[in-house]
Design a protein around this nucleic acid. Structure first.
Lengths: 272, 272
DNA sequence: CATGCCAAG
DNA sequence: CTTGTCATG
């Protein structure tokens, strides 16, 4: 029996990713649910090859495209079980229509969210927008954590957080201390989530090492040199985290070639 | 001994064309000079593979990029002999910097011009601009013709004229009578050039037949069905026209695949 | 249905 | 360096 697995991947445009191997990866994955970010397409713009593959793989798609800028953002959850409920946005009116948050309730008491956190640029209003998003998201995540604990549900948030939490989470941390994604206050914000009880599934399975990274710039030979960042995270409530047996970055979707500048992040859990 | 040949081709972006077979075509052509249109690059933006190929082929490049809109228009002449003089624009201040006309004097008394005539859209100000361009160009061409005759020089104008001169010059002429490129007044304008003495080299070698077309939309299966237009023309003074032995469209640059939505148009002349 | 531009990543 | 957009062809 295959242990249940969950995955998250920023596809950087599902239309392009489909031409480069996403479909092969999907066909081969053992994940029971996958969080997608940067889908960058409305439902009617999804490639036929993609919707066909979903049907063939028995996937349910719940998609929250950006309603505010076409061809941008867009998050989704693929699940082999049909979701019992779907919610788009987390109650932050400034961004709820931007295609940055979708959550589904899956049978068995698991809530799974797909997150695409704004990228930010230090010293600009785009950093202010990222910080405002984080403030609201932090409040929401702490509330959601407490509510899950009180109700006996579990929750996983998979996504592109655009934050490397520690010096172990990017190749050149010294050179990036003033760059968005590794700013001190961003790291503190992330640390507070862990203090509250959220568990970083990949870091827990890879203690005391650099990486594994999940994003590499397309520029230069960043991927070949593994000059990357660990910014795609699976954060989970304790019941899930305690069941995690393996949490890995699928750096080489060997089925095909690299289909995005991000690689899939996968957690495998002990059978319930 | 190879008879002298001249060619014209709209490359629809020299950077893209270089990745799709233009270089193979250039390496194989017997032309002694080639008119290029829609180069869509400034000198410093030309691919290294292109400039290398020019050096290897012994070509001289004279380029008139658009100074008014980057990535647009741009005409050039490639010649195996070094030009004795170069002129950009034909004295129409509204468009002389748009990368639509360059002419070179070649050794032996031939002036060769590369023309990219505006596309136009019926009923819009872009048609007005095309008509104004044509009015000025017509004056210039008649003057140039008379001057060539008086001085004993020959002249060839190769380019994308964006006008199909007669019903034989596009597949679906009935459906295009109200579309720019086949408007009655455009055809009359072209006919007046021939009345003045300019000679249409391809039509003279292909009398009484439909085509050969030189442009096919990228949409649908236009190329495979030969649903095209003959809008790329070589117009010449009588000395050249009388020496023409063959004038063809190189529909299948077999050396590689199709590198543009236009095909090269080539004339081969009797040895002088 | 291509081109190169652009803003964004 | 790549995405999808856009105006243009």
């Amino acid at each position: 029996m295959v242990p249940p697995a969950l995955a998250t991947v920023n596809v950087n445009g599902v239309r392009a990713a489909c031409t480069k191997g996403l479909l092969g990866w999907l066909a081969a994955t053992d994940a029971r649910a996958v969080c997608l970010q940067e889908v960058r397409a409305r439902p009617e713009e999804l490639p036929a090859a993609f919707t066909d593959a979903l049907r063939a793989g028995g996937w349910h798609l719940r998609l929250a495209p950006s309603e505010t800028a076409k061809g941008r953002n867009g998050v989704a959850v693929l699940s082999r079980d049909e979701p019992e409920a779907v919610r788009v946005g987390f109650g932050h009116v400034e961004t709820d229509l931007d295609g940055r948050w979708i959550e589904v309730d899956l049978p068995g008491g698991l809530t799974l969210a797909s997150l695409y956190l704004p990228k930010g640029q230090a010293g600009t209003d785009r950093q202010d927008a990222k910080d405002a998003f984080c403030a609201a998201l932090g409040d929401h995540l702490r509330t959601a954590f407490d509510r899950a604990a009180a109700s006996g549900r579990e929750m996983v948030v998979g996504g592109d957080w655009n934050i490397a939490p520690t010096e172990a989470d990017l190749r050149n941390w010294r050179g990036n201390r003033r760059n968005s994604g590794f700013l001190p206050h961003e790291r503190e914000w992330f640390a507070k989530l862990l203090e509250h009880g959220w568990r970083d599934l990949v870091r827990e399975r890879h203690p005391g090492v650099d990486g594994p990274y999940s994003w590499w710039s397309y520029r230069g030979r960043a991927f070949d040199n593994d000059t990357g960042w660990r910014i795609d995270h699976l954060l989970a409530t304790p019941g899930v985290a305690d069941a995690a047996r393996e949490a890995v970055v699928d750096r080489a979707p060997a089925h095909d070639r690299r289909f995005s500048d991000h690689a899939p992040v996968i957690v495998r859990l002990a059978a319930a």
